[in-house]
Design a binder for these strands. Structure first.
Length: 904
RNA sequence: GCCGGGGUGGCGGAACUGGUAGACGCGCCGGAUUCAAAAUCCGGUUCUGGAAACAGAGUGCGAGUUCGAUUCUCGCCCUCGGCACCA
């Protein structure tokens, strides 16, 4: 079980100079793939020493590590093929490539399996890891397995516990009450996904919101840095950066104080709630405030509910809601008036105080000032309850306030001495006035909330804190780390966390005063493990600290590849911990991931028929017969076993429940890893969704067979030519002597492809178009049938180039072809060198348009002058026909592209 | 609801900086090979009209900017991802 057992002994293999293998006449992927996978393992081809020296030319390529569910799925295949391709390109470019793999091994599924099958989570997880590692290896990934780590291993979580205690000492950790989903029947805390329609997934009981003390990281201390440093991330998708900016949600506004009074003498205001502090991003609309709204969980709401059964009902219903923002935002607006009023700080006006279900208790103070005229949510609420709508901003145009709120900025009206000011000026001036009268001040607020890291679960890293009656919260000292998870635990899914129920885990002596104390039984949020693993990969067995010097040299990650679903949380938390580790002196950079590629999901068609009860029964594609029309469109589908008609469902993310998953293992058995990799990379650009297609896989397989045959036939021709052998051809210069036009064209095609594929792989990361260019080159090589010596040399260059360029995608077949063609180890080779001279041509094709429509194509000399080109274009018969006898009004010439003749 | 993607032939996709819409692959159609089939090879394949040459239309919908828009702007529709305890 110990992952250190995975470390292999290194042998010193010299460069492979084995004698050239003759290719077999058929492509035997099984034999080739197992041979090279073994060879790479034996030679430790992908091992990299994470030394300072090597770091000067380093390339750290990382894919988001998988949760070890036990089954590799196509999403994994896609993710790891993308990162593997990028890593292999970098290796061919001569870089020191670190491409590690590990396991995000803590999480709910292991506990669920424990409850269901009575298997200890550790056993279940380690077994899954073994399975998945074997499956991953069959993909032929160029991964340095000596760097493997699993987050559930005590040697990993030890250091994260230690980091937590250091953060605690630096004041970055605090404890506060926070809401969880509570299942009153199972007496346990539920994750959001375990709450279905407001009910516990196992008990079916209505879930309650309950406040319990939990640990938080002060990520908000880093909010400005997290926001500002996004500008450094040139190679991140703009969309992801935008999502992070919105998530952090920095906004400039004002904190305004409203004095309260109680209208009902029997419900006096509590001593500590004589005023409400609200935050607004629109202080310019302060004169338009028509009411104040408070959250249902607010102290005043509960107070008011004592005299209002309907309000109490609303509060109860809200207490049964899930804690998610999406649920809150889609709720129809609902509220009740309270017997409290507020005084407008500037006008002295009396304003009603309402309870409103759209006010979030956890944001700010749980109260907002409502400007019905200029905020859409306030407007909806005001319209429903007939509250006043007071316009105080004008854009100069007429506005119908019975239709919607006017949310644009403008010029102030009905705002006393501020009338006529722009919204921007008014914001500042109103803040000044509030400040002068001590009724408010300007303030920056963030949407970002502190990161709650406590989970009431077993299968996570224990939070290393001890609660002592006399010393308070005491972090576990370094020498006592890690706080290990006990194995003797029972799983029932009831009664809360198994750790809290464990006989001895909880009971310890205080590290400070040695009196009996209680250990924290909550574990870390699993985002914790995934927020620093990339740094630990650089020194996974380092025993003297969280990170060795390697981490300074080998971070940041140069290329990170993973799913778009991690755009906000995982990436934000990682960026946060990276900055913390930087401030502690363990890494040097500001940001953990220099370049980010977010790959799309893998989708496939789903098929179903409806049962008598009207439920959808999903049927695997393999169990369906199809009838198609002459365009290949499915016109009829029936279930093989029953003959019943089957409906075509949507194109959906592969999942068990939709029965539309494709098993990578079966595919590798049938077609080989190279075909599966090729299809995954060819079928769509990496960041878009990928639609699975059996026919497409067949196509990828056919291409590899054609490629094989091309190489095989080339070698045959070569051997049959007198005076030639592979070794001599490989040393001959393809551009020596006069080339025939066909040979010149072949070289043009080869180097055009080389140029395009290099650009597609490296700059654009557009692998599908790169592969398309290679398929085109392959077709061109197939059409080049000359057999004279010079042509063989030209073809040799073409096939060698094709092999090298295809190798990051299909490494096994290319290794075998390369060995036969060149005799060296392709994995030790470098990227082909572009011959600029091969790209030169004498003539170019130009398009001639009339009024923007293509009407003619013409060949011109590459160095023809603008005048000559325009003259020739205008003299063309077709062009003249479309000019309809009129004189050209304007002629637009785009060099190398087109001539556009404009007539009126 | 808020934030961020996506929408192009029968299908997946290409067109990179506003300049030939449909590269490459799949499917389909025709042909070669075969006793036959599979496999393989060759040719065709956006739609409409036309025998063809050719013409017209066409990138989710509606407007706009431009000599020229899949690409830029504005307004919609559909769809996918995230929304803080799935990872």
């Amino acid at each position: 079980m110990d992952i250190r057992k995975q470390i292999l002994n290194f042998k010193d293999y010299s460069r492979n100079t084995s004698t050239m293998a003759n290719l077999k006449d058929t492509y035997d992927f099984e034999q080739i793939e197992s041979h090279y996978q073994k060879e790479w393992d034996d030679k430790q081809t992908y091992f990299v020493e994470t030394s300072t020296e090597n770091s000067k030319n380093k390339f750290y390529c990382l894919s988001m590590f998988p949760y070890p569910s036990g089954q590799l799925h196509m999403g994994h295949v896609r993710n790891y093929t993308i990162s593997d391709t990028i890593a292999r390109v970098a290796k061919l470019e001569g870089k020191q490539v670190l491409h590690p793999m590990g396991w995000d091994a803590f999480g709910l599924p292991a506990e669920n399996a424990a409850i269901k099958n009575n298997v200890p989570p550790a056993d279940w997880t380690y077994k899954n890891i073994d399975n998945m590692r074997n499956q991953l290896k069959r993909l032929g990934l160029g991964v340095d397995w000596t760097k493997e780590l699993a987050t559930c291993h005590p040697e990993y979580y030890k250091w994260e516990q230690w980091l937590f205690t250091e953060m605690y000492k630096k004041g970055l950790v605090y404890k506060k009450e926070s809401v969880v989903n509570w299942d009153p029947v199972d007496q346990t805390v539920l994750a959001n996904e375990q709450v279905i329609d407001g009910k516990g997934w196992r008990s079916g009981a209505p879930v309650e919101r309950r406040k319990i003390p939990q640990w938080f990281f002060k990520i908000t201390d880093y909010a400005d840095q997290l926001l500002d440093d996004l500008d450094e991330l040139e190679h991140w998708p703009e969309g992801v950066k935008a999502m992070q900016r919105n998530w952090i949600g920095r906004s400039q506004g004002a904190q305004v104080k409203f004095q309260l009074s109680a209208a009902d003498a029997s419900l006096p205001l509590p001593a500590d709630t004589q005023a409400l502090e609200v935050f607004t991003t629109r202080p310019d609309t302060l004169y338009g405030v028509s009411f104040i709204a408070i959250a249902p969980e607010h102290t005043l709401s509960r107070l008011a509910a004592q005299k209002n059964a309907d309000l109490q009902d609303l509060i109860d219903r809200m207490a049964r809601m899930k804690t998610s923002e999406a649920d809150m935002a889609t709720l129809p607006k609902e509220g009740y008036p309270t017997p409290f009023t507020a005084t407008h700080p500037l006008t002295g006006e009396t304003l009603p105080v309402w309870v409103a279900n759209y006010v979030l208790a956890d944001y700010g103070s749980g109260a907002v000032m409502c400007v019905a005229a200029h905020d859409q949510r306030d407007w909806e609420f005001a319209t429903k309850y007939d509250l006043p709508i007071k316009p105080v901003v004008s854009t100069g145009d007429e506005w119908d306030y019975t239709e919607a709120a006017l949310t644009d900025l403008g010029t102030l009206i009905n705002s006393a001495e501020f009338d006529g000011l722009t919204s921007a000026d008014a914001k500042a001036k109103i803040c000044d006035k509030l400040e002068a009268e001590t009724k408010g001040f300007s303030k920056i607020e963030y949407r970002l909330r502190d990161w709650g890291i406590s989970r009431q679960r077993y299968w996570g890293s224990p939070i290393p804190m001890i609660k002592c009656e006399s010393c308070g919260d005491v972090p576990v000292p370094k020498e006592d780390l890690p706080v290990q998870l006990p194995n003797d635990v029972e799983f029932t899914g009831e009664g809360g966390s198994p750790l809290a129920q464990h006989a001895t885990f909880k009971h310890v002596n205080c590290p400070t005063c040695n009196k009996p104390a209680e250990r924290e039984t909550d574990t870390f949020d699993t985002f914790m493990e995934s927020s620093w693993y990339y740094a630990r990969y650089t020194c996974p067995r380092f025993e003297d600290g969280i990170l060795s010097e390697s981490a300074k040299d080998w971070t940041p990650v140069d290329q990170y590849v993973g799913g778009i679903e991690h755009a906000t949380m995982h990436l934000l938390y990682s960026r946060f911990l990276h900055k913390v580790m930087r401030d502690f002196g363990y890494v040097k950079s500001n940001e953990p991931f220099t370049r980010l590629l977010c790959q799309g999901m893998v989708l496939s068609e789903s098929f179903f028929r409806e049962s008598d009860k009207g439920e959808k029964i999903y049927i695997n594609k393999l169990d369906v017969d199809f009838e198609r029309d002459e365009k290949g469109q499915v016109i009829k589908a029936t279930e093989k076993s029953t003959g019943l008609p089957v409906s075509l469902g949507a194109l959906e993310k592969m999942s068990k429940s939709k029965n539309n998953g494709v098993d990578p293992n079966t595919l590798i058995n049938n077609y080989g890893a190279d075909t599966v990799r090729l299809f995954s990379m060819f079928a769509a650009p990496p960041e878009q969704t990928l639609e699975w297609s059996d026919a497409g896989v067949e196509g990828a397989s056919r291409f590899l067979k054609r490629f094989w045959k091309l190489a095989y036939q080339h070698l045959e021709t070569l051997e049959q030519t007198e005076g030639l052998d592979v070794a001599s051809v490989d040393k001959m210069d393809p551009k020596a002597g006069e080339l025939t036009p066909a040979q010149q064209e072949m070289r043009l095609n080869t180097h055009t492809a080389l140029q395009k594929v290099t650009d597609d792989y490296v700059r654009r990361q557009s692998f599908n178009t790169g592969i398309a260019a290679l398929m085109k080159l392959s077709n061109q090589i197939g059409a080049f049938e000359e057999t004279d010596t010079q042509s063989i040399v030209v073809r040799h260059e073409a096939i060698k180039t094709l092999t090298a360029l295809l190798s990051p995608i299909a490494p096994h077949i290319c290794s075998e072809v390369w060995t036969a063609l060149v005799g060296t180890d392709l994995m030790q080779e470098t990227w082909p060198v572009l011959d600029e001279s091969a790209l030169k041509t004498n003539t170019i094709t130009l398009v001639v348009q009339v009024n923007g429509k293509k009407r003619h194509e013409m060949q011109v000399a590459a160095d023809a002058s603008k005048e000559d080109i325009e003259k020739e274009a205008l003299s063309n018969e077709t062009v003249q026909r479309f000019m309809d006898g009129k004189a050209p009004f304007k002629v637009i010439y785009v060099p190398g592209r087109l001539v556009n003749v404009v007539v009126k």
